[in-house]
Write a protein that binds this DNA or RNA. Structure first.
Length: 468
RNA sequence: GGCGACGUGGCCAAGUUGGCAAGGCAAGGGUCUGCAAAACCCUGAUCACGGGUUCGAGUCCCGUCGUCGCCUCCA
């Protein structure tokens, strides 16, 4: 079965073929760290985490690079406003972001390069572009990329230079040959972070760091380049222009872009100010809840984000986890139609899951397959299937959920483990109370345990319990 | 104005090359139950609108309306 991926460059789904068999080189644009990250950033990170996990599930070795842009205008501006050192400010938000990634169960990238650590590579690349006539130093100390020299400029975003000019909100800059030329290197003003260069002290422009980091860590050509679809233009367009002009080779084979998260019908963004920070979200919800929201729709489409959808995702996650509960007390069924049906569904789910994911990471379809297995497990449990029968199906559920990055089986800590004999004891006592029809007391135990995170479920055969 | 995407039951949504419309949440009815919870069973869609191609279209083509993104920093 072959994986097909939608490629922004060709606007089609294409069979996935890597440059090197069995190996995927994937570069995903990370955040510019000048402020707290919001759930939109988290969405992007989750999308590419899911893609990465599935590629690994398919047997690929994935070199996953996610950068941090830790020097740019916004960082400097913010730091100046607070009277702080820009690099220190960036450092702080970077560490915060790292922590969010852990909380969201995002696998660490193979490498997290930072713009400020790649200055030599950047300078070398800018010089190379100047040497080839693709760039020119301007009187003000900036270095610009010469878009007119790059004949296929605009191929990713489907724009033509002349159309964009007609749009005409571009400021005319005396230093530029063409209004669309963009900075590779920016001369620094006094008090700004600066590095020495052949063109005087300055810092990298916005797009060049990604090109340089790609080159340094993944090579001249890569398999997947990802990011939010708001980066298609100008960021990725400019990256292509720089890198391909420099190397003379096609840069990334597949350009993959996630849709924007929508809050009350609008894109969540810093400039609009309709933000929900990752910190705020995680203070109230399990990280897997956000992941469920991402999984429930296509990564390329806008993602609806509001309280109702959050609640829905929360319930859906509970349903997945609920399927992992053990067999009914005394259940001993190990053969017969319910058992066979569960086996069949387990196989069907694995197959359906892969088919869905192979189709451009159709996570919503894959989730549907998981829920089919959930139903089958619950049916088997109701039919009295023994744990030994449920276990393989449940393990498949946990495994496939894991491919999507979901933590379905919450880890029980040492303390929880230690509490189990006492919970069992309370259940025994309560069973006796129920035999004597002392409902008030038995309900009290159930309510108090609930408060402590232990859920009791009574059935004809007896009572089961699980952590909330 | 230019480029692009989307519009599927109350809500979130899937839908390979066109062939009887997944799944989750919510709602109603039922089974089980001392009650509760969970689970199971049952119930619902003229696929924005109008044309066209076709034996047959949510799926292809044209048009209309609406929503959103990019074109300036943005995941």
């Amino acid at each position: 079965m072959t994986l097909r991926i939608y490629n922004t460059l060709t606007r089609k789904k294409e069979p996935f073929e890597t440059l090197e068999p069995g190996v995927v080189r994937m570069y995903v644009c990370g955040p510019t760290v000048y402020d707290k990250a919001h759930v939109g950033h988290a969405m992007s990170v989750l999308v590419f985490d899911i893609i990465r996990r599935y590629l690994e599930y398919k047997g690929y070795t994935v070199f996953h690079v996610m950068n941090y842009t830790d020097v740019d205008d916004k960082i400097i501006q913010r730091a100046n406003a607070q009277g702080r050192d820009p690099l220190e400010l960036a450092e702080e938000y970077m560490h915060e972001f790292d922590q969010h990634l852990r909380d969201l169960n995002v696998l660490p990238a193979t490498i997290n390069p930072r713009a400020t650590q790649e200055i030599d590579q950047i300078i070398q690349m800018v010089q190379g572009l100047i040497d080839k006539g693709y760039a020119y130093p301007a009187p003000n100390g900036d270095v610009y990329f010469r878009v007119r020299r790059d004949e296929d400029y605009g191929k990713l975003s489907g724009r033509k230079l002349d159309d964009m000019r007609a749009g005409a909100r571009i400021e005319v800059d005396e230093n530029k040959e063409d209004p669309m030329d963009f900075a590779l290197w920016k001369a620094s003003k006094p008090g700004e972070p600066a590095w020495d260069s052949p063109w005087g002290p300055g810092r990298p422009g916005w797009h060049i760091e990604c090109s340089a980091m790609n080159l340094a860590h993944l090579g001249e050509q890569i398999d997947i380049h990802g990011g939010g679809n708001d980066l298609i233009f100008p960021h990725h367009e400019n990256e292509i222009a720089q890198t391909e002009s420099y190397t003379g080779k096609p840069f990334a084979r597949y350009w993959v872009h996630n849709g924007m998260l929508q809050l009350s019908g609008e894109k969540m963004s810093k400039s609009i100010g309709n933000l929900v920070t990752i910190e705020d979200f995680l203070a109230e919800h399990d990280g897997d809840v956000l992941r469920m929201m991402v999984l429930n729709s296509s990564y390329r489409n806008p993602l609806t984000f509001n309280d109702e959808v959050i609640a829905q995702a929360e319930k859906a996650l509970e349903r997945l986890r609920g399927a992992l509960k053990s067999a009914l007390p005394g259940a001993s069924l190990t053969e017969g139609e319910p058992v066979e049906a569960l086996k069949r569904q387990t196989e069907a789910t694995r197959k359906g899951f892969e088919e869905a994911m192979d189709d451009d990471f159709n996570t919503a379809g894959a989730l549907g397959e998981l829920f089919a297995l959930v139903k089958a497990i619950n049916q088997a449990r109701d039919a009295g299937a023994a744990d030994s029968v449920l276990a393989p199906a449940q393990q498949t559920l946990v495994d496939l959920g894991g491919v999507l990055g979901l933590r379905l089986r919450p880890e029980t800590g040492q303390a929880d483990k230690a509490a189990e004999p006492f919970i069992e004891l309370l259940l025994e006592v309560r069973a006796e109370l129920r035999r004597q029809k002392l409902w008030a007391l038995s309900d009290l135990i159930r309510d108090r345990l609930k408060d402590l995170g232990v859920v009791l479920e009574d059935s004809k055969a007896g009572t089961t319990w699980h952590w909330e």
